[in-house]
Design a protein around this nucleic acid. Structure first.
Lengths: 252, 252
DNA sequence: CAGTGGTCTAGACCACTCC
DNA sequence: GAGTGGTCTAGACCACTGT
């Protein structure tokens, strides 16, 4: 049995040169959460219990918990305890939420139509962004998103097909990629790289989005990144500007 | 039976302990910084001094300082003290930095040419965004930004003309609006509302940006917001997509 | 060296939640 | 009432910065 299931292992490093105690406790808990030894929604041991199991004072425990809280990994409720946050409960700023969720917030009906799902080699820029070897195989999806029944966005996404991420393809017709990553697969989005530019529609996208070929489209790229630094996907999105404009709030 | 001690704290609010002590200390210091009684770069009183002047324990002082630090208002240096951050030293993510600064980071020469500066009534959407009465007078600037000498962006900005913000117009030819707001005027940018869409260039902008009238442009809107919640400007920017694409990192 | 922030302890009382 | 987190105190020792 190499697996010890005790999430509160009192294995603090006593050597003077190591991290401060609270940092060791913090990273121990942090690892338990990221590795899902502590599941989303689960209650952490009480501060009193940690005081005993780690052999430190309560203030030291609290310092670790405070930092985890400000990182959004846990939340504490007076009189009840500390709990691992569910990824989707963490505040979503900007486009960390997805396209459909953001449409629904503005009161519009959002739906999607998957055009194709296939496996193929990653283009160079994708492999670089996802930190994969050149020509690694990825899952490639193409889809049309509709707002109130009108074609609004054309999306081409690349997923590294391990870690169960390929099951995305089954849900994408009804769900958001970002929402699925968070809610179903339990990834903890930390940040999203975005870029924006404009392109001429062209006749292929024009056909799909039902606009003339010389109309402008908003071209955005989204690369959501996990708390562990893992790039989860690479998504090129072409929006019809008459149907959708991207909004976000950038924080200091 | 209520705790009626602590009648002698000179600066703290004694009204029935509405806020915790550390929160009162925090907001007192915060106000001193925002009102510039404590200037950028200035050293705060030492923790020991605050312990005396506020009449609380050191941990309570430190709790206030910790939160101010995580908000980016102060920074503490071991062995020296705590200091009010200079706005420009606060980490700038996304487009909180400006266009020229971001161009220079990518190694390109950035310059600007002011086309016009005038005062006029704010369009409705601008007045609403800046929280001004309808038809309030604002300073309106139009400018062309060049990258490596090539016209790259056309910018139309609206500034509420009080608070010395109008001096912006003098510097905008060489400096960034966001940089001037932070470095020269000492505003503390907290967040920036952005939106992105695509438009056809049209012949006016086409003439200014030296592209054909049916080329697509990236249209972005920036509304930087102060730590006090004040909207500092309203800026419509039209980018040539062949010269510039907008990049940012959205954080949780 | 003295002054500063960084870490940590061993208590205490309170407000809140659940039983 | 028992258990929990929220706040606060009065110390202590350390590492770092300046002189």
């Amino acid at each position: 049995m190499s697996k010890t299931q005790d999430p509160s292992s009192p294995d603090l490093d006593a050597t003077a040169s190591a991290l401060p105690l609270f940092a060791q406790i913090k990273s121990s808990l942090r690892q338990d959460i990221l590795d899902k030894r502590l599941r989303a929604g689960q209650k952490l041991p009480s501060e009193a219990q940690m005081q005993l199991s780690f052999g430190v004072s309560r203030i030291t425990v609290r310092q670790a918990l405070n930092e985890l809280q400000s990182e959004g990994l846990i939340e504490t409720v007076n009189g009840k305890g500390s709990f691992v946050t569910r990824p989707a409960d963490a505040p979503r700023l900007g486009m960390l939420a997805g396209f459909k969720e953001s449409l629904r917030r503005s009161g519009r009906m959002a739906s999607g139509r998957m055009l194709s799902v296939r496996t193929g080699p990653a283009p160079q820029r994708v492999a670089r962004a996802l930190d994969l070897p050149p020509h690694a195989l990825v899952t490639i999806t193409r889809a049309i998103f509709l707002a109130d029944g009108v074609p609004t966005a054309f999306v081409k996404s690349y997923y590294e097909p391990t870690l169960g991420r390929e099951i995305l393809s089954e849900r994408l017709a009804t769900e958001d990629a970002m929402s699925v990553l968070e809610d179903e697969l339990g990834f903890r989005l930390d940040q999203t790289k975005i870029s924006a530019t404009a392109v001429k529609c062209g006749w292929i996208r024009g056909f799909l989005l039902e606009v003339p070929a010389d109309e402008p489209l908003l071209h955005m790229r989204f690369i959501p990144i996990d708390l562990t630094g893992l790039a989860l996907m690479y998504s090129d999105v072409y929006f019809r500007p008459d149907r959708f404009s991207y909004r976000a709030m950038l924080r200091r």
